[in-house]
């Protein structure tokens, strides 16, 4: 049943998101062609309009990720707490399956959106020698900070956990907001900021407390400090994940309030 839920969510979101992703990649190709054209011709009008076009392209890359996030949260609100919830919650599946399928699909599509955005930037400007220069540059940066190449994985893990945490925080905020009879959207936004503020306050306090421990001794090496703080933030995010998931679950299970 869980996989069926995932299948239907994927299908529904692909329908909306695929054209967006495809459009952005196409845009990247056009931008690449334009850049080439600008390099060939020394036309002032072309360079001005081309410059604006390129600016628009980079904004679109950012917009693609934001738009994906917005569509995902609207989809969650509509299908779990909106009118479509009448169907979702009368399917013979549990609340855990419903939430986890949404979580999985949201993380997948956010990753896809970020991948598409980065891919588009690469397509628009990419030249092989530059790519290797970039990776060399990053390698040098890591080396100067005394970090090992395995650090890439720590960064990836951190981004992944951060994404999951954010998605769950949004789910929790929407689930609380929609338990009100009026102003469901307003309360959802309000609780998003409330959860966000609470989370950052807790992490700040925890960091301050841990500052004085040996881990963050002034004598400690930069690499150790960086790795430790990364690990710490991943750990904290995992705890937040659990809390947000519980909130979303309990509000959906016990306090569902469909119009």
């Amino acid at each position: 049943m869980f996989m069926k839920l995932v299948k239907h969510e994927l299908h529904e979101l692909l329908r909306v998101l695929l054209p967006i992703f495809g459009g952005l990649l196409l845009f990247a190709g056009v931008t690449r062609g334009l850049i080439w054209l600008m390099q060939q011709n020394d036309n002032p009008i072309l360079s001005v309009t081309g410059g604006m076009f390129i600016g628009l392209f980079f904004m679109s890359c950012v917009a693609c990720v934001i738009l994906t996030a917005v569509l995902l949260l609207v989809r969650f609100a509509k299908s779990v707490h909106g009118d479509e919830g009448y169907l979702t919650h009368t399917l013979p599946v549990g609340v855990h399956s419903i939430l986890c399928s949404r979580l999985l699909v949201s993380v997948l599509f956010l990753a896809a959106a970020m991948g598409t955005a980065i891919g588009s930037v690469l397509i628009s400007t990419w030249r092989l020698e530059e790519l290797s220069e970039i990776s060399e540059g990053i390698g040098l940066l890591f080396e100067s900070a005394g970090l090992k190449s395995g650090f890439w994985w720590t960064i990836l893990a951190s981004v992944f956990v951060q994404t999951v945490t954010t998605v769950l925080m949004v789910f929790a905020a929407i689930s609380i907001g929609h338990s009100f009879n009026r102003g469901k959207v307003g309360f959802s936004i309000l609780f998003y900021f409330a959860l966000n503020t609470t989370a950052s306050m807790i992490s700040t306090i925890l960091s301050l407390l841990l500052m004085n421990t040996t881990l963050f001794d002034e004598a400690a090496e930069l690499s150790t400090v960086t790795s430790s703080s990364m690990a710490l933030s991943i750990g904290m995010n995992l705890v937040f994940c659990g809390v947000y998931y519980f909130i979303a679950w309990i509000m959906t299970r016990k306090r569902l309030n469909l119009a």
């Binding site: 009118d83 919830g85 169907l87 013979p92 549990g94």
Partner: peptide
């Protein structure tokens, strides 16, 4: 989950996407 297999529900409002 078990009872939802047995119950067919028509809500008051249109709920189809």
């Amino acid at each position: 989950v078990e009872t939802k297999k047995l119950v067919s529900f028509l809500p008051e409002r249109t709920y189809l996407a």
